[in-house]
């Protein structure tokens, strides 16, 4: 039993790394979705006795994170014609290195977290922390909004896995609430991405700064990137 839990945890971590290192946006989304399914299964295994509430949480989290959200995001990818993540702020290889460091940091942090009760696997805390870190790292370092949504899923999976520690304490209602938040957030992001895409013909979030409020700055200093460019060229790096 413990072996199975450990195996699934490591798999979830690797999927997080996959999301961090993969170039194709759709692969990122599916990696995050698979991770979501695994976390759902983990919740089922960790519990001692199976209740109806648990089944509902597990089933709905698998359906939402494993099916609805990836389907929705894939559709957005298709309509938005976003294929590949280009020019991330932190390169793919470097990202993996930083992700490894984050895992190290998570391991280090987890040793100092003292818990008032026994847990099923010692790996739960470091891996859930590392998954959350990796999710954050992906959000920060990528340009495409859809990758960021997928990374948000990874981050949420990390938090969900951390919740495994507290199976006895965390009521079903809270987990359902978290799931609802996630669903709403992804939905809103999808709509936003769709609209940004329709208005600007791209969903490069690093160029959203062209929308930013220039009013006070105009008085004192023209923002360097205050003028909206019409081409979608690769010169955006100069902005940052």
């Amino acid at each position: 039993m413990e072996n199975l839990i450990d195996f699934l945890l490591v798999l979830a971590l690797l999927l997080g790394f996959a999301c961090l290192g993969l170039r194709r946006v759709s692969q990122c989304v599916w990696a995050a979705a698979a991770q979501g399914i695994i976390t759902g299964i983990l919740l089922l295994i960790v519990h001692d006795k199976v209740e109806i509430g648990l089944i509902i949480v597990v089933a709905s989290s698998i359906v939402v994170k494993g099916l609805v959200v990836p389907w929705y995001l894939t559709r957005t990818i298709r309509t938005g014609r976003v294929e590949v993540e280009v020019e991330p702020f932190i390169g793919f290889n470097l990202s993996l290195v930083v992700g490894g460091l984050a895992f190290g940091a998570a391991l280090w942090l987890s040793t100092s977290l003292t818990l008032p009760f026994e847990i099923d696997s010692e790996l739960i805390i470091p891996i859930s922390l590392a998954t959350a870190f990796i999710g954050l790292l992906t959000i920060i370092s990528r340009r495409k909004a859809i990758t960021q949504v997928a990374a948000f899923l990874v981050l949420e999976n990390g938090i969900f896995m951390f919740g495994l520690v507290l199976v006895s304490a965390l009521p079903t209602l809270v987990e359902m609430g978290v799931l609802l938040d996630l669903f709403a957030a992804v939905f809103v992001m999808g709509v936003t991405i769709h609209n940004i895409n329709r208005e600007f013909d791209h969903i490069d979030t690093s160029r959203l700064n062209q929308l930013h409020d220039m009013l006070p700055a105009r008085r004192w200093r023209m923002p360097r990137n205050g003028v909206r460019r019409s081409d979608g060229g690769g010169s955006d790096r100069a902005n940052l």
Binding site: F89, I140, L208, H212, R221, P223, N225
Partner: peptide
């Protein structure tokens, strides 16, 4: 202002 560049990342 340098803190608030408009970059989501």
């Amino acid at each position: 202002r340098w803190l608030q560049q408009g970059s989501v990342n």
